[in-house]
Simulated scan of single mutants.
Amino acid sequence: MLLGGGRNQDFKTEETTAFETTEFLQNHLEKFLKEVVIPDHQYAIALRWSGIMAMGSEKTPIVKQLSQRQFCAVRLSGMGVALAPEIGERVAEMI
């Protein structure tokens, strides 16, 4: 299971360029997982990560080929987890 999001719960703290998780958001996501997604089930967290939210004046993600061997998928406006499957397919087709 891939779970992410919730940055709107503490947007000021999450408005950062540091690649590190925050205790508040990790606790928020774990509570959501435990109480809403899979209540009454044991689970183990295999990996935690953080990213930098890329916002722009437009909401449309940028998905394009930059060079013969480079592609980008950026400006997902805080919706990277939700958009990842579709964006991944687009980049795969481009390759």
Rank of each mutant, 00 (worst) to 15 (best):
E30K: 07
E30I: 04
K31C: 03
K31Q: 11
F32M: 03
K34H: 11
E35S: 14
E35H: 11
V37E: 07
V37T: 12
I38N: 06
I38L: 14
P39A: 12
P39M: 10
H41E: 13
Y43W: 13
Y43F: 15
A44I: 10
A44C: 13
A46L: 15
R48P: 02
G51M: 00
G51Y: 02
I52L: 04
M53A: 05
M53C: 04
M53V: 11
A54R: 03
M55Q: 05
G56N: 05
G56K: 02
S57P: 01
E58K: 12
K59V: 12
P61W: 06
P61F: 09
V63E: 05
V63M: 10
V63D: 06
V63P: 01
K64W: 03
K64Q: 15
Q65H: 07
Q65C: 06
L66N: 15
L66G: 14
S67F: 10
R69C: 09
R69W: 08
R69A: 11
Q70A: 12
Q70R: 08
F71Y: 15
F71V: 10
C72A: 14
C72H: 09
A73L: 02
R75S: 04
R75L: 04
R75I: 02
L76D: 04
L76Q: 10
S77H: 07
G78Q: 00
G78C: 01
G80L: 02
V81N: 08
V81D: 09
V81Y: 10
A82Q: 15
A82C: 09
P85C: 13
P85G: 11
P85T: 12
E86V: 11
G88N: 10
G88I: 06
